[in-house]
Write a protein that binds this DNA or RNA. Structure first.
Lengths: 182, 182
DNA sequence: CTCAAAATAGAGCGTATACTCAAAAACAGC
DNA sequence: GCTGTTTTTGAGTATACGCTCTATTTTGAG
């Protein structure tokens, strides 16, 4: 483990490199050699700081998943618009982590059972909070608002996909239309 | 290329094997060795019939997509509902291929250049046909129907994402609601 | 300044994978 | 049956990858 400053700095460089590669070239392209070259580190140093390549990758993925997590202190208070805005802001503001999150969720590195569960539970949390906000604002039934929330979130995720594919795509105003046409 | 019966039969066995592996163990697990073992074929025979492992995979992907096409031979006949149904059927019937599709959309996940191109051009075709169907049915302008098609497809991709995350998610009826609320 | 701990370098190992090739066997038209 | 073509075999090649190990340098507390 790293105890001196140089070790901690190298560790950061490695994680930066891994994060960059995951977002740009995907899981397959994130080879050890690529990580090492970009971080300007030899394999010996890497394995002095990490037990395996996967450990570095999982560290980054965990970070990405946490970044999608809605803030827990606002439960029961947020509006639909706030939640949608927060999501869009995450996607457009942190495209690197957003890409990693979506890639991971779709099936890349999800051989890790615990991570898969975390992604699902984050998704669940988001649906529930959206449904609550919808019920508070429109007064629809519990079941119906949940269905609406699922549809809305699916739409947002779809928009995110589209935006990642085409950065010129106007995700913000599409999101507005999506909320309006609900 | 195969000209005698035995050649055609081994070709079929290889494609069956590839299809089975893609569905069961995913893209990563579909190694050449696995294909060969399941098809009871040695590598020499394989390369007598295919130029590469990717060609076999590509063939399977193409067949899966075509199998679900409502009007494979003629463009300009399908309805919006038909195209949406075909999409849902593709996603739920071939979850592995659906994953490949979405991973490619997120970008970079596909190391295979030809496969990525194939998937993306398929995406383009689908947008165009959806837009055409929308214009035929609603009489909207060319530009507007294309935007609508992109939004609709984004929604469908979002639903697919949700379904891949949670297989219990009722993607079919959600898709119906999505089309209805357009 | 000293010295044990930490950090680094980089040659090299083991393994998995896609793919090649020359020779042998099976095939089918004559 | 003869003969050219197709099919099959399987040992062998090339490469990429994750990872190890030892020697060397750097660090920083006392």
């Amino acid at each position: 483990m790293a105890r001196y400053l140089p070790g901690l700095q190298t560790r950061d460089r490695i994680l930066d490199s891994t994060r960059w590669l995951l977002a740009r070239v995907g899981l397959d392209g994130t080879t050890l050699a690529a990580i090492l070259e970009r971080a300007k580190v030899r394999s010996g140093s890497f394995y002095n700081l990490f037990d395996s390549k996967d450990e570095a990758i999982l560290t980054v993925v965990r970070e990405a998943i946490n970044a999608v997590d809605p803030h827990p202190d606002g439960i029961g208070k947020d509006t639909v618009q706030e939640l949608v805005d927060a999501y869009i802001q995450f996607i457009t503001g942190q495209p690197t982590l957003a890409k990693i999150y979506l890639q991971t969720a779709v099936g890349g590195a999800m051989h890790d059972e615990a991570l898969a569960h975390r992604v699902l539970s984050h998704h669940e949390t988001r649906v529930t909070r959206l449904a609550d906000a919808l019920r508070r604002e429109t007064g629809t039934s519990k079941a119906k608002s949940r269905t609406q929330a699922e549809l809305l979130l699916a739409g947002l995720n779809g928009l995110a996909f589209h935006w990642l594919l085409d950065p010129d795509f106007d995700i913000s105003s599409r999101a507005v239309e999506l909320v309006a046409g609900r």
